[in-house]
């Protein structure tokens, strides 16, 4: 990269991440970036445990396929899933070990609990869950049960009014109009221009 571009990227990076992380990137003996794992240790701990359970379940189910098929192990349908999940299990054990090196199990559980409580109280999380719930209802209960344009209009209106809600009728009407135009545009483009079937 040119010097000018390099400087521009560095400037942006400094604005985005803490100064210490950019000014001097710590590298190990092999030249790899040393990342501060302590901040995400409780998240790593949680995902490692969940994925370890998943891997072990997959291994057990896959061995069942081998028994069922009654063929050589490497030819059975369960062979590759066992291989992949074993790999995943080993990596999760390593991730778990790394996370536990930064803190004790007890503290880790306390951090997870604290994080969960903070998420429950967070306004951003609330908004995300409500938005997702509206789309969830749209995907699981409305699509296929009513005309696509109607289901989409209702869902889109609900989401837009929710995200832009400011207790004025003007905004509500504006959002309804935007939703109607969006759905009409999408249906026209896909159904009539591209001849794509609608759900």
């Amino acid at each position: 990269m040119s010097e000018e571009n390099t400087k521009a990227v560095e400037k942006r990076a400094q604005e985005e991440v803490p100064e210490a992380a950019v000014t001097e990137i710590e590298r190990d003996a092999y030249g790899f970036e040393v990342v501060d794992n302590t901040k995400t240790a409780h998240q790593d701990f949680l995902t490692a445990v969940i994925l370890m359970v998943v891997s072990i379940t997959v291994i057990i189910v896959s061995l069942g396929y081998w028994k069922k098929q009654n063929v050589t192990f490497y030819a059975s349908a369960g062979f590759v899933p066992v291989l992949f999940s074993s790999g995943l299990l080993i990596m999760c054990i390593r991730l778990l070990r790394e996370s536990l090196q930064s803190d004790s199990t007890k503290n880790m559980l306390a951090r997870i609990k604290k994080g969960a409580i903070a998420s429950v109280k967070s306004n951003i999380v609330h908004r995300s869950i409500i938005g997702l719930a509206i789309f969830g209802v749209y995907v699981f209960f409305m699509l296929g049960k009513m005309p696509f344009w109607l289901a989409s209009f209702l869902a889109l209106s609900a989401v837009l009014i929710f995200v832009r809600f400011d207790k004025t009728l003007k905004t509500v009407l504006k959002m309804l109009l935007i939703a109607a135009l969006c759905v009409a545009g999408i249906v026209l483009l896909f159904q009539y221009a591209f001849n794509v079937p609608m759900p």
Partner: peptide, 13 residues
């Protein structure tokens, strides 16, 4: 906030 929900409908299709 307006664009992304509309994109979701396109993603559904």
């Amino acid at each position: 906030r307006v664009l992304m929900p509309a994109i979701f409908i396109a993603c559904v299709i």
